[in-house]
Computed example of a mutant assay.
Amino acid sequence: MLRSALNRLIGMAIVMFLVVTIVFVIVRVTPGDPAAVMLGPDATAEDIASLRERLGLNAPIPVQFLTYFGGILRGDFGQSIFLNIPVTHALWLRAEPTFFLTVFALAIAAAVALPVGVLSAYWRGSAFDQAATMLAMFAASIPSFWLGLIFMQIFAVQLGWFDTSGYGGPGASFAERMHHLVLPAVTLGLISSALITRFTRAAMLDVLNDDYVRTARSKGMSEWRVVVRHAFKNALIPILTVIGLTAALLISGAIVTETVFGLPGVGSLIVSAVLRRDYPVIQGALLVVAGLYVLVNFVIDMLYLLVDPRVRY
């Protein structure tokens, strides 16, 4: 188990090194002077020269890469051009809404998808199965921004249960801020539950007719114990995989939902950075998102070792 974890950590380090290299190269191969692109067409020659000196663009490319890579190892992603604060600080200030939105959306998706997928497989071909499959396909085809606007119109505008946008004022309590996340979390969770439902159903169908399930039934075990303890446990590997992929997709997919609901998260920060050509923020956000992807995959790999002894050995 320890050897497997070390191998995956080495793989994570290699992947992140490649991501850092690609992010570094993308900015340098952009047509024109990167400093001029960042500052826009109204920048003076003095402003461009000052920014080039500030970003170290006058140094040779290998020196730039070593400086950039060394800064990342120290947790220094550079300075935001427009916010005039370190990129790490800008990302940290926006991390809370995105983190809780992703966690709540994943919890809602799993809470909806897992029981529906298990019951759909158990009652294969029934009206429940057909309705669940149809709803999953429908949810998978709905754009998140459209569903978010529908929920906003019904629950915020007409019923008045929630605010249409925002994350509470500067003095808002934690409960008030979490209240603002209910609608966006439900929006993302319902859409994400479609994929988990389909994979859970398919994984359960693969194991429900296996010999060990029939043996468990022949021993007189209750159906609940047979389905949950034997079938579901052995179907967890593909289910964990799709849950991990969903968590990684939610991190990047929250950008649109945050924009619709006016949440001051990392997604809105990335959108504003793209519009302002704030490349240090864009680079830092790309590295953070890529790092979270790799971390989620590592956690899922470790869960494989706990769930399935065959993987461990």
Rank of each mutant, 00 (worst) to 15 (best):
G11L: 12
E46A: 14
P34Q: 01
L295D: 02
Y122Q: 10
R310D: 00
L147Q: 07
S268G: 11
L236W: 05
A203W: 07
S272C: 00
V294C: 04
M12A: 15
A113W: 03
A109L: 03
A121P: 11
W161I: 03
N84K: 15
I72A: 05
D163W: 11
G166M: 12
S120I: 00
Y304I: 01
V311R: 01
T215L: 13
V182A: 10
T67I: 09
Y313I: 12
W146G: 09
I282N: 05
I243G: 04
G70Q: 09
V29H: 04
S272A: 11
F162V: 02
P86V: 01
Y313L: 14
W224A: 10
P97N: 05
S192C: 06
S252P: 09
Y122R: 14
S141A: 15
L245Q: 11
G189Y: 02
R229T: 03
R177C: 09
V274K: 03
L73C: 11
E53Y: 07
A156Y: 06
I61K: 14
M12Y: 03
A216L: 08
A121D: 10
N209Q: 14
R310S: 04
I150W: 12
L275N: 13
L208S: 03
Y304E: 01
A290Q: 02
L250R: 12
Q153A: 14
R276A: 13
P34I: 00
A216C: 11
